[in-house]
Write a protein that binds this DNA or RNA. Structure first.
Lengths: 365, 365
DNA sequence: CTGAAAGCGCTTACAG
DNA sequence: CTGAAAGCGCTTACAG
């Protein structure tokens, strides 16, 4: 009997009158065991209720078939969908995924995992700086910026931001909009990235559309407190959602969208349509506008980015450029498993956004 | 060097000119090692970038400090919150939790975990029937019905349904409602449980309130397809949300709520207020009513059960009896860890619902 | 205080 | 086809 009173190979071997090696071969269906002997061993194993110890197997193989996914904010629907896709893809290949919300990277050395996944490259960077230069588990991360260089080699699943922004603008142009604005958080790496992509494109279009020279008049930047810059700084200190805390949505992108809504209402932004930083922001934005009598899309059109599943839950389904988070997660998991199984995946893996039409954009024709 | 080219105790021992036993004692801060020797060992370990192999440690201790939580539907906000609470509580005690969405119980024997958590007792029952009678990892589950008897001992975190229903009815009575109806899925174990609790209480109140004898006129049962009885049958076959499937909210309670809304509109149900099976159902119900010109709470009052975090995202925050899913999850994790650490937790652990006021109940006084 | 040895439960190359 | 033995990387009771 094992340490906890569990049945081990040794018990089965003794009861079946064979060696542990034969039990191993019989149970694993590997190597040669005479038919009758094998059957007897299996029968005895079942009778004794024997289950191979997965820890011992892992020690032998140096593989756990378990992965970890770090995410700092599970209430963000995008993250949830990423995890969902990654989890199901991994499952198909016999792996399981840990979702770690605490992001205490120092614990990685205690976790029984073969690889580390991130749905956000800034988290991957933090991880690498904290422990990843010394602890060399393979890393796969989704990346918003294909030009990003990590301190050590990291496989990427690339979210094609240039295409996303262009698809959004193309869609709105196709609906007859000219003054196409942008709603973004005040600061943040990806806020700036999307802002630049938007600006580049709008500068190209400005003359044809007859827009003034100050495109920034079309931008709404959400005022956010110093403590809640979502994408860059919220990990210090880590966000801990307290059980029983009624306000635990307070740090979400949704609230950034609400603050953006307030800002918009106090401005004279001439946009007829906005692309929002993501769907969460879009819904927060819409909520404030509607509460103040500005109707979407009658008075103003709004698009999001992401394609969150909650679109179906809201009164109005937001028109959006879907990133297909499930697919991004699934690709990330597949790339990781390819690495672990020496299948040599591509180093950079591009994913495709697409427009999902909703009910928040007015056709001006 | 280890099998993967990693540094092991042996390498450190050789480089430091000591035995592996001393390395072990130095690294773990256990037993006696002369101060200078210990310092040299630590220095060498750091220089060689040595990290103890967690698998080997687990084999030795027969502990992984990892748990698994089975959930069949992560897009249900309640489940998400349960996981969130469990995960953070476990983290505080040095444990990590696997969230398994695939619910392929046969794989449990391959997972490197010390215990199994469920947020739903019907899932726990299925698990026990499938593998749990033979594979004896400890089990903790949230339970909707304190009288439930499992085929083997299982620690419970009890969701106090009698109190939930009574609190909801008390709240609505306090707001001057008399015809207090119920919105539930057509079938399902907990649908029936909550129905009975509602009926018992309403029968007591009927005379004082001047209600007719057929209380069932106040009930809306959602017609649901044969394939999507959420709480009892959806595991065969398991629900697999397909990446790229735009309709993957289709199986959610939200949709049950929408179907209930259709049903209500085609009935002459006299209720002035409804208690819905949960918040998801409430929001689906409200959405259909509003789309059809029946306003909440002006024309009809609606309450939910659960207290999901998405209440803050919707145009109207639903009035609800909160189960505090984070807390339920946290208690489940703590009970499990108490078991694993021989701290003898209570067998049944009651949790307390409370009313969260929202904007969907009309005060009739 | 330190090291050699046995052990955690498994796998596999080797000899027979 | 089968078993004894060495090994995966760690821990710990034991002897010195």
């Amino acid at each position: 009997m094992g340490i906890k009173g569990t049945v081990t190979r040794k018990d089965v071997a003794r009861a079946a009158g064979v060696s542990v090696a034969s039990v191993s071969r019989a149970v694993n269906n590997s190597g040669y065991v005479k038919r009758e002997v094998k059957e007897r061993i299996i029968e005895v194993a079942n009778r004794l209720n024997y289950h191979p110890n997965p820890i011992a197997m892992s020690l032998q193989s140096q593989k756990t078939r378990q992965l970890i996914l770090y995410q700092n904010e599970i209430t963000a629907p995008y993250n949830l969908q990423f995890f969902n896709g990654a989890s199901r893809a991994a499952y198909k290949r016999g792996y399981a995924i840990f979702l770690d919300l605490n992001c205490d990277f120092s614990r990685i050395t205690r976790h029984l995992v073969d690889g580390v996944l991130f749905s956000l490259d800034v988290l991957a960077e933090k991880y690498i700086k904290a422990v990843g230069m010394n602890y060399l588990l393979p890393i796969v991360t989704a990346t918003n910026d294909a030009s990003l260089v990590f301190p050590r080699p990291v496989h990427n699943v690339i979210i094609d931001n240039p295409r996303i922004i262009n698809m959004g603008i193309d869609y709105l142009l196709g609906k007859g909009h000219r003054e196409i604005g942008l709603v973004i958080p005040q600061r943040g790496k990806y806020s700036e990235l999307r802002y630049k992509l938007w600006k580049n494109r709008m500068e190209q279009e400005a003359k044809a559309l007859g827009l003034g020279s100050d495109l920034d008049l079309l931008v709404v930047r959400a005022e956010i407190g110093d403590t809640d810059n979502l994408l860059n700084e919220r990990l210090d200190p880590p966000l801990i959602l307290q059980p029983s805390d009624d306000n635990f949505a307070d740090y979400s992108s949704f609230n950034i969208g609400m603050r953006a809504g307030m800002r918009y209402l106090n401005s004279d932004n001439p946009a007829t349509a906005f692309i929002c930083f993501n769907d969460d922001v879009a819904y927060g934005f819409i909520r404030v506008l509607e509460k103040n009598g500005v109707h979407v899309p009658e008075n103003i059109s709004v698009m999001g980015i992401d394609g969150i599943y909650l679109r179906d839950w809201f009164e109005k389904s937001v028109s959006t450029v879907s990133i297909d988070a499930e697919n991004v997660g699934a690709v990330a998991a597949d790339v990781m498993i390819d690495i672990l199984e020496n299948k040599k995946p591509k180093y950079m893996n591009w994913t495709s956004p697409r427009v999902l039409e909703g009910e928040t954009v007015m056709d001006r024709y």
